[in-house]
Simulated assay, not measured.
Amino acid sequence: MTATALYRIYSQDDALLYVGTTRHPRGRWKQHAKDKPWWPIVHYIDYKWLPTQAHAEALEQNAIAAECPPHNKQMPPWRLPVPVPLMQAWTDSFDSVAELAFEALSGGADLAAVAEAADWSPRYIVRLGLQRHVPWAEQYVARIREGKVKLS
């Protein structure tokens, strides 16, 4: 499973310009800066890490269909949005796994064991925890910085 970021690019007046997915956000944005004529009007980028590329792409398809960002090319017919009930079930399932993982880690469970059980990488769990402001993740990163633990 490979964590993938779903990102939205906005202008200064908070208008959505573009929706995309990537495993390497900074590199992707550098590429956009080189080849997108609309890049000078970008003000900020909002992104969210998801556990799989498939999940990120499904959310991307739905966002493009629902939000119609002006700089996304038209979706090909084979990239139809995922039905909302399926997407909601998927999101609910993901959130349940995340909550259980953070609860176990907060209770002292081993990160590697939780990662294996969730079928996520340890790095993804820490990144997701930081994104959601989970105290366990913030404490774990502080321990990494102090050299007390190493993230594999």
Rank of each mutant, 00 (worst) to 15 (best):
V82F: 04
D92A: 06
K150D: 10
E57P: 01
H24P: 08
G108K: 05
L86W: 15
V97A: 08
L111T: 12
H71R: 02
D95R: 12
P25E: 10
Q131P: 06
L59W: 03
T91W: 08
D119K: 15
E60L: 01
L6V: 10
A118Y: 02
T22W: 00
L86K: 14
P51C: 05
S96E: 14
A54W: 13
H32N: 06
P37F: 09
K148Y: 13
W78A: 15
W29Y: 15
L17R: 03
V114T: 15
A89Y: 06
W29I: 13
I41D: 00
K30Y: 12
Q31M: 03
K73A: 13
E146Q: 11
T4H: 08
G108I: 09
I45V: 15
A63P: 06
G147I: 04
R26L: 11
E116S: 03
E57N: 14
W39P: 00
E138S: 12
S11K: 11
Q131A: 14
L80D: 10
M75R: 13
K34S: 13
K48Y: 01
H32S: 07
E67W: 00
H32E: 00
P37Y: 10
D110M: 04
R132Q: 12
W29L: 15
P25H: 06
P37N: 12
H43I: 11
G129W: 00
M87R: 06
G107E: 13
A104T: 01
A101D: 14
Q12M: 07
T22D: 03
K148S: 15
V97W: 02
A109Y: 06
I41E: 07
D92F: 09
A58Q: 15
A89S: 12
R127D: 09
E99Y: 12
R123Q: 14
T52C: 01
G147T: 09
K150N: 12
W136K: 03
V42G: 04
G107K: 05
E103V: 05
C68P: 00
V149E: 06
R132Y: 00
D13K: 11
